[in-house]
Simulated assay, not measured.
Amino acid sequence: MKTVGLGFYYEDMPVGLKFKTIGRTVTETDLVNFVNCTGMVEVLFTNAEFRQKESDIKSRLVPAMLAQTFAEGLLVQATMQHTGFAFLGMELNVVSPTIVGDTIHVEVEVLEARLSKSRPHRGLVRTRNQVVKQTGEVVLTYTPTRMIKCRSGVS
Protein backbone atom coordinates (compact mmCIF):
# COMPACT_ATOMS: atom_id res chain seq x y z
CA MET A 1 0.00 0.00 0.00
CA LYS A 2 1.37 3.42 -0.95
CA THR A 3 1.94 6.02 1.76
CA VAL A 4 0.73 9.50 0.82
CA GLY A 5 2.16 12.73 2.19
CA LEU A 6 5.83 11.82 1.80
CA GLY A 7 8.29 14.59 1.04
CA PHE A 8 10.28 15.51 -2.03
CA TYR A 9 13.40 13.52 -2.80
CA TYR A 10 16.58 15.16 -4.09
CA GLU A 11 15.68 14.08 -7.63
CA ASP A 12 12.35 15.95 -7.32
CA MET A 13 14.10 19.29 -6.69
CA PRO A 14 15.93 20.47 -9.83
CA VAL A 15 17.28 24.00 -10.01
CA GLY A 16 14.50 26.32 -11.16
CA LEU A 17 11.62 24.28 -9.70
CA LYS A 18 8.94 26.59 -8.26
CA PHE A 19 5.98 25.74 -6.05
CA LYS A 20 3.87 27.22 -3.27
CA THR A 21 2.29 25.90 -0.11
CA ILE A 22 -1.26 26.19 1.13
CA GLY A 23 -2.01 29.16 3.37
CA ARG A 24 -2.37 29.53 7.13
CA THR A 25 -3.99 32.39 9.04
CA VAL A 26 -2.07 33.73 12.04
CA THR A 27 -4.47 34.00 15.00
CA GLU A 28 -4.40 35.83 18.33
CA THR A 29 -4.01 32.45 20.03
CA ASP A 30 -0.98 31.68 17.85
CA LEU A 31 0.63 34.97 18.90
CA VAL A 32 -0.06 34.47 22.62
CA ASN A 33 1.19 30.88 22.55
CA PHE A 34 4.33 31.80 20.60
CA VAL A 35 5.41 34.73 22.79
CA ASN A 36 4.74 32.77 25.98
CA CYS A 37 6.43 29.59 24.74
CA THR A 38 9.56 31.43 23.56
CA GLY A 39 9.69 34.02 26.34
CA MET A 40 9.48 36.73 23.69
CA VAL A 41 7.20 38.86 25.86
CA GLU A 42 8.42 42.15 24.38
CA VAL A 43 5.95 44.99 24.99
CA LEU A 44 5.54 45.45 21.24
CA PHE A 45 3.77 42.07 21.22
CA THR A 46 2.09 42.13 24.64
CA ASN A 47 1.15 45.71 25.55
CA ALA A 48 -1.65 47.36 23.52
CA GLU A 49 -1.23 50.74 25.25
CA PHE A 50 2.48 50.86 24.43
CA ARG A 51 1.79 49.87 20.82
CA GLN A 52 -0.87 52.60 20.42
CA LYS A 53 1.27 55.34 21.99
CA GLU A 54 4.80 54.40 20.92
CA SER A 55 4.83 52.07 17.91
CA ASP A 56 4.68 53.03 14.26
CA ILE A 57 2.58 49.89 13.72
CA LYS A 58 -0.72 50.04 15.62
CA SER A 59 -2.02 46.61 14.50
CA ARG A 60 -1.50 43.39 16.48
CA LEU A 61 2.05 42.75 15.30
CA VAL A 62 3.56 39.25 15.46
CA PRO A 63 7.28 38.40 15.70
CA ALA A 64 8.90 37.76 12.34
CA MET A 65 10.16 34.44 13.68
CA LEU A 66 6.57 33.32 14.23
CA ALA A 67 5.91 33.87 10.51
CA GLN A 68 9.14 32.06 9.61
CA THR A 69 8.29 29.16 11.93
CA PHE A 70 4.82 28.85 10.39
CA ALA A 71 6.40 28.92 6.94
CA GLU A 72 8.66 26.03 7.92
CA GLY A 73 5.66 24.15 9.26
CA LEU A 74 3.81 24.58 5.97
CA LEU A 75 6.86 23.27 4.12
CA VAL A 76 7.50 20.32 6.45
CA GLN A 77 3.92 19.12 6.06
CA ALA A 78 4.11 19.19 2.27
CA THR A 79 7.70 18.54 1.26
CA MET A 80 9.92 16.94 3.92
CA GLN A 81 8.20 13.98 5.56
CA HIS A 82 10.65 11.02 5.55
CA THR A 83 13.04 12.80 3.15
CA GLY A 84 14.32 15.91 4.92
CA PHE A 85 17.37 15.08 7.05
CA ALA A 86 19.02 18.33 8.10
CA PHE A 87 18.49 22.07 8.13
CA LEU A 88 22.00 23.39 7.49
CA GLY A 89 21.54 27.16 7.65
CA MET A 90 19.81 30.16 6.13
CA GLU A 91 19.87 33.86 5.47
CA LEU A 92 16.69 35.68 6.60
CA ASN A 93 15.36 39.10 5.60
CA VAL A 94 12.30 40.72 7.14
CA VAL A 95 10.57 42.71 4.40
CA SER A 96 7.34 43.90 6.04
CA PRO A 97 5.28 43.20 9.17
CA THR A 98 2.95 40.28 9.74
CA ILE A 99 -0.09 40.98 11.89
CA VAL A 100 -2.75 38.86 13.55
CA GLY A 101 -5.30 37.94 10.88
CA ASP A 102 -2.82 37.71 8.01
CA THR A 103 -2.95 34.51 5.97
CA ILE A 104 0.51 33.50 4.81
CA HIS A 105 1.83 30.95 2.34
CA VAL A 106 5.32 30.15 1.07
CA GLU A 107 6.55 30.49 -2.50
CA VAL A 108 9.67 28.42 -3.14
CA GLU A 109 12.28 28.34 -5.89
CA VAL A 110 15.16 25.86 -5.97
CA LEU A 111 18.41 27.83 -6.38
CA GLU A 112 20.99 25.08 -5.99
CA ALA A 113 20.93 21.28 -5.90
CA ARG A 114 23.97 19.03 -5.68
CA LEU A 115 24.87 15.64 -4.30
CA SER A 116 26.61 15.57 -0.93
CA LYS A 117 30.29 14.65 -1.08
CA SER A 118 30.43 13.47 2.52
CA ARG A 119 27.03 11.80 3.00
CA PRO A 120 26.09 8.98 0.63
CA HIS A 121 22.57 8.98 -0.79
CA ARG A 122 21.98 12.60 0.22
CA GLY A 123 21.59 15.80 -1.74
CA LEU A 124 22.01 19.42 -0.67
CA VAL A 125 19.27 21.78 -1.81
CA ARG A 126 19.16 25.55 -1.33
CA THR A 127 15.90 27.38 -1.97
CA ARG A 128 14.62 30.94 -1.94
CA ASN A 129 11.50 31.02 0.20
CA GLN A 130 9.20 34.01 0.14
CA VAL A 131 6.54 34.25 2.81
CA VAL A 132 3.60 36.04 1.22
CA LYS A 133 0.41 37.32 2.84
CA GLN A 134 -3.09 37.45 1.41
CA THR A 135 -2.52 40.88 -0.19
CA GLY A 136 0.39 39.51 -2.25
CA GLU A 137 2.88 41.42 -0.12
CA VAL A 138 6.11 39.59 0.76
CA VAL A 139 6.76 39.65 4.52
CA LEU A 140 9.92 37.50 4.73
CA THR A 141 12.50 36.00 2.43
CA TYR A 142 14.90 33.29 3.49
CA THR A 143 17.29 30.90 1.78
CA PRO A 144 17.60 27.63 3.65
CA THR A 145 20.02 24.88 2.73
CA ARG A 146 18.81 21.38 3.56
CA MET A 147 20.11 17.84 3.31
CA ILE A 148 17.56 15.67 1.50
CA LYS A 149 17.34 11.95 0.86
CA CYS A 150 18.04 10.65 -2.66
CA ARG A 151 15.41 8.31 -4.11
CA SER A 152 17.86 6.44 -6.28
CA GLY A 153 20.43 5.67 -3.62
CA VAL A 154 23.06 7.17 -5.96
CA SER A 155 25.78 9.21 -4.30
Rank of each mutant, 00 (worst) to 15 (best):
T38F: 10
R51A: 15
K58T: 08
T83W: 05
A86H: 11
C37A: 14
P63G: 04
E91C: 00
V110I: 15
A64C: 05
I57F: 12
V110T: 13
A67S: 15
V108F: 03
F87D: 11
T79G: 04
E72F: 12
S55T: 01
A71E: 09
T98K: 05
M80T: 09
A86I: 11
L74P: 04
H105W: 15
H82I: 07
P97D: 11
K58A: 05
N47K: 05
V95L: 13
V100C: 04
V43Y: 12
P97N: 08
F50H: 09
E91W: 00
K58E: 07
L88S: 09
T46Y: 04
E109D: 03
A78W: 01
V94T: 12
I57A: 00
L61C: 04
V35D: 02
L111D: 10
T98A: 10
T69R: 00
F87K: 02
E42G: 02
I99G: 01
M90R: 13
F45S: 03
F34V: 10
E54L: 04
M90Q: 15
F45G: 05
V106S: 14
L92W: 02
M40C: 11
A48Q: 09
G39L: 08
Q68T: 05
I104R: 02
D56E: 13
G73A: 06
T83Y: 04
V62L: 08
L61D: 07
V41H: 03
F34C: 11
G73V: 07
V41K: 15
S55V: 00
E49T: 13
F45I: 03
L61Q: 06
E109A: 01
Q52T: 07
E107K: 11
C37S: 13
Q52P: 01
G84K: 07
E109N: 01
A71F: 05
E91Q: 08
A67V: 10
L92Q: 08
N47E: 10
E109F: 02
H105D: 05
T69M: 04
T83S: 08
I104H: 01
H82Y: 14
D102S: 01
V35Y: 05
M40W: 01
F45Q: 01
V76S: 08
E42K: 12
F85T: 02
I57H: 06
E72K: 14
G39Y: 03
V43Q: 13
G73F: 06
F85H: 13
L92D: 02
E109I: 11
C37E: 09
L66N: 03
E109V: 14
V94I: 12
A78G: 14
A86E: 10
F45R: 02
L88Y: 03
L44Q: 15
E91P: 00
T38M: 11
T98D: 14
E91V: 02
L44S: 02
M65L: 15
L66G: 00
S59L: 11
A64V: 11
Q68G: 09
V108W: 04
G39C: 08
K53Q: 14
L111H: 11
F70N: 02
Q81K: 15
I99A: 04
P63T: 06
Q68R: 01
